[in-house]
């Protein structure tokens, strides 16, 4: 059979890729304070226990605020950069885009400590705002990667037609371009929200005493008795992420179809 061996390998590979995510709900519903085998029995107590953790509520509130702010700001910055880089030729384009996209490969800890040094140096108090700034830095390249695909497949003649019919660049953008790239924008909002919700290093270094969900999870790993609750929390977060990503993927595909482009696959 064509690709038989490769298919088998790819399926095993996918299985290993999903192994931790498959284990997560197993331990979330396991009636034992120790996260290990053999399993003990079914329980939902970890989920109910999760509801009376005041620090967790605080962390959830912080994380949601940060993720919403981050997704809006980084998508705005992403729209500008993706539009500029796909539509215009300008000096030092490679260097500017290289700098903006650098956080994709730069070890995150280096970006985090250098931001920390600068924030402390200029006397900026560490808190939600500094976390948001760090997250926007991390999320903008992803937003640009998604939006570039949407802007690239735009037909330039639509825009020229609008100019010829007397529209200004601003009204053309608003009336013609924005509706066409809207699915890409929604996809970018969802993806950056998901990344921010899950981001640990920036929040850990730049948060001061403020706790986000990943920081809360990280500190709880030190206490073996609170791990099952984290498994329950993790299960909910994974379900939420998958839902958001599935919606994002739907919009991304619709966006590319709408502008007449060819779907070449993933987000990156």
């Amino acid at each position: 059979m064509k690709g038989g061996w490769f298919r088998g390998y790819a399926i095993v590979y996918l299985f290993v890729l999903y192994a931790p995510i498959i284990l997560l709900p197993i331990f979330a519903f396991n009636d034992s304070a120790i996260v290990s085998f053999p399993l003990a029995g079914f329980t939902t107590k970890w989920f109910t226990q999760m509801l009376d953790e005041p620090t967790l509520h605080e962390a959830l509130k912080n994380s949601l605020f940060i993720a919403v702010s981050t997704s809006i700001i980084s998508t705005l910055l992403g729209v500008l950069a993706a539009r500029a880089s796909t539509r215009f030729v300008f000096p030092a384009k490679g260097a500017i885009m290289g700098l903006i996209m650098l956080p994709l490969v730069l070890p995150e800890i280096i970006a985090a400590v250098s931001l920390l040094v600068v924030f402390l140096g200029i006397g900026m108090p560490l808190g939600l705002l500094t976390i948001i700034l760090g997250h926007v830095l991390v999320c903008t390249p992803f937003s640009i990667a998604i939006l570039s695909a949407a802007f690239q497949s735009l037909d330039r003649s639509l825009e020229e037609a609008a100019y010829d019919l007397g529209e200004t660049p601003l009204s053309t953008f608003y009336l013609i371009i924005l509706p066409l790239v809207m699915p890409g924008i929604i996809s970018s909002l969802l993806i950056t929200f998901t990344i921010s919700l899950d981001e640990f290093i920036m929040a850990f270094f730049l948060g001061g005493t403020n706790v986000t969900l990943p920081v809360y999870i990280f500190t709880q790993f030190r206490f073996p008795q609170s791990v099952p609750v984290i498994m329950a929390l993790g299960t909910i977060l994974v379900l939420l992420s998958i839902t958001l990503l599935a919606i994002a993927e739907y919009f991304r595909r619709r966006g590319i179809a709408k502008t007449g482009g060819k779907n070449t696959g993933g987000f990156l």
Binding site: P20, I21, L24, I195, F200, S241, F267, L268
Partner: peptide, 16 residues
């Protein structure tokens, strides 16, 4: 399918 695990709770995956 390949990218989904990458976007989901990094800390929890490492712990698992």
């Amino acid at each position: 399918l390949i990218t989904i695990p990458f976007w989901t709770s990094y800390l929890v995956r490492v712990f698992l």
